[in-house]
Design a protein around this nucleic acid. Sequence first.
DNA 1: GCCAATTGCTTGAAGTTTAAAGAAATTGCA
DNA 2: TGCAATTTCTTTAAACTTCAAGCAATTGGC
Lengths: 164, 164
Amino acid sequence: MILDSETKAVELPDDHGTELRLWLRLLTCTTLIEGEVRSRLREKFDVTLPRFDLMAQLDKVSDGMTLSDLSKRMMVSNGNVTGLVERLVESGHLDRRTSETDRRVQFIRLTKTGRAEFRKMAAEHEKWIADVFGDLSPKDIRELMRLLAKAKGSAQRSAKARTA
Amino acid sequence: MILDSETKAVELPDDHGTELRLWLRLLTCTTLIEGEVRSRLREKFDVTLPRFDLMAQLDKVSDGMTLSDLSKRMMVSNGNVTGLVERLVESGHLDRRTSETDRRVQFIRLTKTGRAEFRKMAAEHEKWIADVFGDLSPKDIRELMRLLAKAKGSAQRSAKARTA
DNA sequence: GCCAATTGCTTGAAGTTTAAAGAAATTGCA
DNA sequence: TGCAATTTCTTTAAACTTCAAGCAATTGGC
């Protein structure tokens, strides 16, 4: 803490320590939970987190999704999705068919088995997450949702400004 | 929304939707910011995020740290740190010496160059983070810090219960 | 002192991830 | 129509990551 001549707290001109600490805490929380989910998925279902995430995206829709859609929603690179889908098709969880109007496009969807298997995992997953946040009151959760939405908007604004 | 016979909102016995949405939002925020930081580090300093993170841990101390300490603090596997350190020693950013009392132990520290280079990056990094959270008021930040601390505690409790 | 358990680190295999370059197909505009 | 720009996806190289197994050194009973 820095005090000026009249003993009043003042900030350094460029002190961004609180934002940095916020970021580190956000990162710690996420890493912690992600690691926990990863371990449990491996333990109980012998599946990796990226595969689970990909299937989660596909489970939201009934008629499939393109690779580009997947990479945008998952916020990972295109090439990454190519590999993940390849292995999931190989293991019988996914199904791919080429668009008839645009031969570059592939529609990917869960197979019957894939969807059934995912649903089983998702039900457990939801319970794990509920437990992870078990100490938070409904009000805490609402407040966190609100503030994270604001943070997300702020981050998007910042990212956009850089790219622009 | 489900309403009972007296038209009062009730929850399904096992509805954990709000926790799940909270987790997804937390993950989205972190992924978004992480990607932004990753891009900027590459653009401005041609350094990867894992290397930056590792150097950040070492910059906090003056006299070095063991590989185990690093892996615990970074919340990544031991083998991961082995590889990262190897490459950073190779590039002249780090320095390793074996403990004299326990020959299994390696003390790792930043070289002079490594520290100078890190400090330059860290100063920029702090500004980026400040910008990322620029739309949040000081009160928002305080609240987020508080709630994330609570979430972290809750997640740790949950993880511990599983391992136990 | 002996030796089982633990600790610190490395290795190897498999998978994930990015960035960058490239191939194939479509689009849009002159 | 012609063709440059764009879009979609794949490929490649390098790095990152985990997990599990293993090696070397130390520790803690006994």
